[in-house]
Amino acid sequence: MARYILGRLLSAIPTLFLIVTISFFLIRIAPGGPFDLERPLEAKVMENLARIYQLDKPLWQQYLLYLKSLASGDFGPSFYFRDFTINELFAEGLPISIQLGSSALVLALIVGGAMGVLAALRQNRPADYSIMAAATIGVTIPNFVVAPLLTLLLGVWLGWLPVGGWNNGAARNMILPIVTLALPQIAVVARLTRGSMIEALRSNHVRTARAYGLSGYSVVVVHALRGALLPVVSYLGPAAAALLTGSVVVETIFGIPGIGRYFVQGALNRDYTLVMGTVVVVAVFVIVFNLIVDLVYALLDPRVRYD
């Protein structure tokens, strides 16, 4: 098992390298640079800025310099947030995104999973229909609609919860962002669980378990659900990577200092190092979570072995 994990991690290095290389050159194709403002700069000032940020060097040299600093864990200075390095920005923002994302993930798994199981057990009955209708709505309404509606209702009209702001991570400020992040995930998890649960309930091993006279709980939870979770897990891998690295929409609407916004801010401001930093972080998360998914497979499905 350890050998397998090590092998996977090693094989991730060329993948990462490729991602870094492609993104490095892609972002440079975008017209304009980090210092193009509505107010143009004096040529001399532009020259000095370029020198300070090493943009005056040939592109291949910049690329090698970036790789070198990246290898030592240094993402470089931000071109837009000039008082911060990318490492400082991530040190501040990433824990916040992870905290919100993981809470949303757990919420989605518990609520969505329970809804899916319930729907499967009550297949083609009113409970099933209403859960699936709710799930369809959950998937189709985008979060930039849900978030303002929730804040209007619970923040502005009822005054129960704050409309925005992080407030140093106060629980009250986290509720709405977590719910907004979790809603579409709940819907997807519910649909996936329902589908695979219906299949599992009809499968031979569950029928056998029933025939042996096992209790309903044991049949559903131990025998059916375990197998039924496989598609959910494979969905949750990439979904978790996306959730934990923050959401532009949710962070902007609720005024949360996570790293989700940096993707867009970096791209729009031509903050090359910030874009590269977010790309690397997201790539690492995707790689790690795909590995975790494969490991969880082995736990859930006895047929999967990594020896």
């Binding site: 804040t151 923040g155 502005v156 704050p162 409309v163 925005g164 702001g165 902007t252 609407i253 005024g255």
Partner: peptide
């Protein structure tokens, strides 16, 4: 920073 003007309006309405 109130980049989202709609969100800023709601925060204003809520007295934040």
């Amino acid at each position: 920073p109130t980049e989202d003007r709609g969100a800023a309006l709601r925060r204003f309405q809520a007295g934040e």
